[in-house]
Write a protein that binds this DNA or RNA. Structure first.
Length: 550
RNA sequence: UGGGGCGUCGUCUAAUGGUAGGACACCGGGUUUUGGUCCCGGCAGUUGGGGUUCGAGUCCCUACGCCCCAGCCA
């Protein structure tokens, strides 16, 4: 199961650990989201990394909610996060963990810190702490409360817990080094007072642990071996290590890797939240959102995302992945697995004048040319059909393979047709075509060996179902909107194009389905989660590759 | 200018000190009942300068560039 080549640096570290027996050859990872928003594609990288590594080494991976800040966190997010991880295909089994379940333990560990004389209760305000922290170039100033007695610290800390003090009036701080070149080591806050309702512990606590204190303890309590996190935590590692060493408890290894960035995409939860709250998108799962739920609604498959993460790799340098690579990954997956259907987005009526009136027939259509086991279906054909507006041109350029006056094309799976008359409205707009068909070309093959260059998709006007089809473009026009001064400025005003008069083949109205189809020649589409029988809505996940240059 | 990281094709990512490879993108050509897929081919890279070595992307020195850190957020 374990590959021997092209191992990324984390796998190499684990291989080394297993050779030296550092963690008794165990591998236990965790995915530790804070439930303060929906998961996005960047989280998916962390999810895949952690769960895949556990699986590869025969270890385990916990899903752990890092719910140490009641102000930002909500139940809805713990629900959606579980749904998204599950959808990606990962199973945490019975290892659903919450940092809040360890609050009692964390509190006693804090008492232990106080007992060891390396933590103190500080009365400085947030502003005063900021003032005395120093700068990047100058050391900070020690708190006047730094040398309180252990007894006093203990008493005060207990009273903090018991609700005697107001928010912000006191903190518990670690006693490390106010002159430390690493800002994180300048007597960091361990606990703060927050009289707030927690979504799980309700009103039990009014003191809450800070990330650096909590996270290492969570890892330690759960027996995590390799604690994977992103690069910005690199200079938190000394503190992570310091806490665990002071306590003398089991000590996991933190390893940092570069988070995923996508071109033309924002990955900041804060900014995504702003899009939702300002109504710029249709919720967290808007198909244009880089959230996992957005990609799901857009028509992405879990497999395509996992394959993408495999290709992206794991390293330590900052990166911006080309979103085209994600799209390519989807196409590759769906080309092999999705059934084809006929749909016309911008219908142009074609009357086949030599086809019998009041008559119709069925033609046989392969569901997937890449997969014979997908079988075939029957599609109704009749005298009046719709083709795509852009598949006809009255005055075509040189290499136009589609329909034009006098030219012959194939209607896929049906017949060859030739265009004889162009009907226009009062504005000169083409509204209808009169064509003739060759009845000896049924199925799309000529009996005399003559060939046509163009093959068009179509639907029978008599049998077609109306639907709305939504085409999406990137939400942002800037390659890296996250680094722009104002990300809202580069919002693409044309990121959604809703087409209301589309005609789709009847089979698309019949079943309920949640897997994408390929609409012949157009791309991959999925029925929108809010679609109904009365108003059918399809989302285009991604267009087919188009190398035709007009 | 303190500390922590990172520099390989346009974008990602590989390479016990031994021919710099792959993917995406892009550009050609072939096949094709999707201008899709598939197949074949092409383009293109080690941040600069020194040093060690028979040999350096890899080791050493140096310069430069980029990212992160001064929340009682995570």
């Amino acid at each position: 199961m374990i590959k021997t080549t092209n191992r990324h640096f984390i796998q190499k570290i684990i291989d080394d650990d297993n050779r030296s027996g550092k963690f008794n050859n165990k591998v236990h990872t965790r995915f530790p989201p804070e439930p303060n928003g929906y998961l996005h594609i960047g989280h998916a990288k962390a999810i895949c990394l952690n769960f895949n590594i556990a699986e590869e080494y025969g270890g385990k991976c916990n899903l752990r909610f890092d719910d140490t800040n009641p102000i930002a966190e909500e139940e809805e997010f713990v629900r959606s996060i579980q749904e998204d991880v599950k959808w990606l295909g990962y199973d945490w089994k019975d290892r659903l963990c919450f940092a809040s379940d360890y609050f009692d333990q964390m509190f006693s560990f804090a008492l232990q810190l106080i007992d060891s004389g390396v933590a103190f209760v500080c009365d400085l305000s947030a502003e005063e702490i900021k003032q005395t922290r120093g700068t990047l170039n100058e050391p900070g100033i020690e708190s006047p409360f730094r040398n309180r007695s252990i007894e006093e610290n203990k008493d005060l800390f207990l009273r903090m817990r018991d609700g005697e003090f107001n928010n912000g009036s006191k903190t518990l701080r670690a006693k490390i080094d106010m002159g430390h070149p690493n800002m994180n080591m300048r007597d960091p806050v361990v606990y703060r007072i927050l009289h707030a309702h927690h979504h799980r512990t309700k009103d039990k606590w009014c003191v809450y642990p800070m990330y650096d204190w909590a996270h290492g303890l969570e890892d330690s309590i759960e027996g995590i071996t390799h604690s994977l996190c992103s690069l910005e935590f690199e200079d938190h590692r000394p503190l992570y290590d310091w806490y665990l060493e002071q306590l003398g408890v089991y000590h996991p290894q933190q390893i940092e890797f570069a988070r995923l960035n996508l071109s033309y995409t924002i990955m900041s939860k804060r900014k995504l939240k702003k899009l939702v709250e300002n109504g710029l998108v249709d919720g967290w799962d808007d198909p244009r959102m880089p959230t996992i739920s957005g990609f799901r609604r857009r028509g992405y498959t879990p497999q395509s995302i996992k394959n993408f993460m495999e290709e992206v790799g794991v390293a330590k340098r900052d990166n911006v992945m080309d979103v085209a690579k994600l799209e390519s990954s989807l196409r590759t997956d769906l080309n092999k697995r999705s059934d084809r259907r006929m749909a016309v987005l911008n219908p142009l009526k074609v009357v086949i004048t030599n086809y019998p009136k009041d008559s119709d027939e069925l033609v046989r259509a392969k569901n997937n040319p890449e997969d014979d086991s997908a079988g075939a279906r029957n599609i109704p054909f009749s005298r009046e059909i719709y083709i795509e507006k852009e598949d006809f041109m009255e005055n075509p350029p040189k290499k136009y393979f589609r329909l034009s006056p006098g030219s012959e094309v194939r209607l896929k799976f049906a017949y060859f047709i030739k265009c004889n008359d162009v009907i226009k409205d009062e504005y000169g707009e083409v509204v209808e075509l009169h064509c003739t068909y060759d009845k000896n070309t049924k199925g799309g093959k000529s009996s005399d060996g003559r060939k046509v260059k163009g093959t068009l998709h179509w639907v029978s006007a008599l049998h077609a179902i109306s639907a709305e089809v939504r085409l999406y473009d990137r939400l942002f026009q800037s390659v890296n909107p996250d680094t722009d001064s104002d990300f809202l400025e580069s919002i693409n005003p044309n990121s959604l194009e809703a087409l209301h008069d589309c005609k789709v083949e009847p089979s698309l109205g019949e079943e309920t389905f949640d897997f994408p189809f390929q609409f012949e020649r157009l791309g991959y589409f999925i029925r929108d989660s809010k679609s109904s029988k009365e108003s059918l809505v399809f989302n285009r996940a991604v267009a087919l590759r188009d190398t035709w240059k007009q």
